[in-house]
Design a protein around this nucleic acid. Sequence first.
DNA 1: ATGAAAGCGCTAACAG
DNA 2: CTGTTAGCGCTTTCAT
Lengths: 326, 326
Amino acid sequence: MSTIKQVAQEAGVSVATVSRVLNSNGYVNEETRKKVLQTIEKLNYKPNAVARSLFKKQSKTIALIVPNISNPFFPEVARAIEDVMSGKEYTLILCNSDDKEEKEQHYFEMMKQKYVDGVIIATSTVRPKYIEKSGIPIVAVDRFINEDIPYVSVNNTAGAIQAVRYLKSTGCKKIAHIRGPEYIHNSEERYQGYLKEVQGEGWFHPELIVNGNFESETTIKATEKLLTKYPDIDSIFAGNDYMALSVIKAALRMGKRIPEDLSVIGFDGINLSKLTNPELTTIEQPIYDIGYKAAELLLDVIEGRPLTKIQHELDVSLYEGQTTKR
Amino acid sequence: MSTIKQVAQEAGVSVATVSRVLNSNGYVNEETRKKVLQTIEKLNYKPNAVARSLFKKQSKTIALIVPNISNPFFPEVARAIEDVMSGKEYTLILCNSDDKEEKEQHYFEMMKQKYVDGVIIATSTVRPKYIEKSGIPIVAVDRFINEDIPYVSVNNTAGAIQAVRYLKSTGCKKIAHIRGPEYIHNSEERYQGYLKEVQGEGWFHPELIVNGNFESETTIKATEKLLTKYPDIDSIFAGNDYMALSVIKAALRMGKRIPEDLSVIGFDGINLSKLTNPELTTIEQPIYDIGYKAAELLLDVIEGRPLTKIQHELDVSLYEGQTTKR
DNA sequence: ATGAAAGCGCTAACAG
DNA sequence: CTGTTAGCGCTTTCAT
């Protein structure tokens, strides 16, 4: 690796001049510019990003903090973010928090020490004050933090309402809900959407709602219990696709046919849901777009462009699979 | 953010002394050590990682280059790597190459400019020479590069043989293979394993092998064509789980029952294969372990520990789902 | 045991 | 238009 000094020497100019052509700022004679460019080429010189960072106090690096990259929702988000970032010559750092505040804080420390320019985070645990005083530009994805922090997700409540209405439109008369954990903002919103749409119904009662905790075994158990106690349930709105697949598994074990005996609808639209048999009916999120938008917003903040809008809720869409009736 | 200078001033010592206690090297009086430690605490001082990198020419950062993090195999690998790395205070950079050599090279440039300490890569396109002359410690996962480059994966050939034998053991008499792309080393190995196990059989002929290209639509089409032409095929070994699910979809569309009319076995053991109905029978890779091992190996190389072994092939195991007979 | 000082590679005043 | 120089924050000789 050659340095700016070597380039300067070889080209017979000062390092300042080389720096000037590198960053195309300041005046530099066209002749010398050419000469410098040639030497750069000749020595295959690439500026040292670390030295640059040290001076500029920024690193052309951003971090993505997710609970767990193995959760099928996040790879798609990560992919989108990395796409826009690598296009802008930024580098993406991946962090798994397991929704543990202490891990998140540890990552924030690292970010300050490495002059990381910004962070995109999906969190339910981080305290807004902590984030704000970190001084690092931030964008929240999937999970809302507070009014001041840019946020990109979908309208979960509206999506849930759409799900329930769709079940009704196919003739379902007793719709249960397997919800995600209470501490997660979006499962709360989906639950609220469900509630809004069903609580006026004569058949509704609170025991139609059970907690699946986004966990396969928990969901299967919960579903079995629910369907045993209330055999006349004809449909289930699951808080996400993962749980929906577990619901189906439980129902099949109990000898129910899908969708004849039980309709199932999920939420998310992860890739896998289209590969199952039958294909899962679900409320699809534009997952890639969420990541893409979040990345763009973060760049706006980092590069000092004013945001015209802070909260972004993209539209969901219904994917009609075969786990619901026509 | 306070600096080492401020700490020195506050503690009434020189920056050299602070540096010594920071890195616990060189002599420093126990008394002054305590005082420095206190001031560090008091000022909440954290050493600037960038300045450190500039001097040391290393960054406590490693990169993971995968074709696409959305491919369900890689998040699990990434998770494992990040787990071991964050435990050692290393940071993980995520890169998607789309199996494009030009993208990989671009990432390698970035890595040199940022003093990235090492890289774990899953690639089919990179030329070994290029990697070697990059001078960056490297470990290959999932896809073999060459004899000199540390490599962690599974024994694909043995896994494929095990898959075919298992099908035979359940009574299958005509076993087809949907294979992955030729340029990918591991799909080639799986194909070879299949071939080895079936080519002595009287029923075998080359048309039982078709290319699915790891692609859903391609696989469905290929399967339909195959089963139409050879309706007496009673089982299919798919090159990975993703393709296996597509095979099932195609078969069901043609009115075949799984596994009564057609047995299907996959390869990989991605999380999602256990959520489908019926659950997929597959050759499970210890995906997390692969990532974990790769990370450990890379750290060995980075930190100068000699490797006792270069090529690591972990064991696969059969997962008996319900897409094959008992 | 401690401090002074050079230097990692680059950028941005400041002079000229 | 170009060169000199002082940092960015840290580590490490080299003296003392």
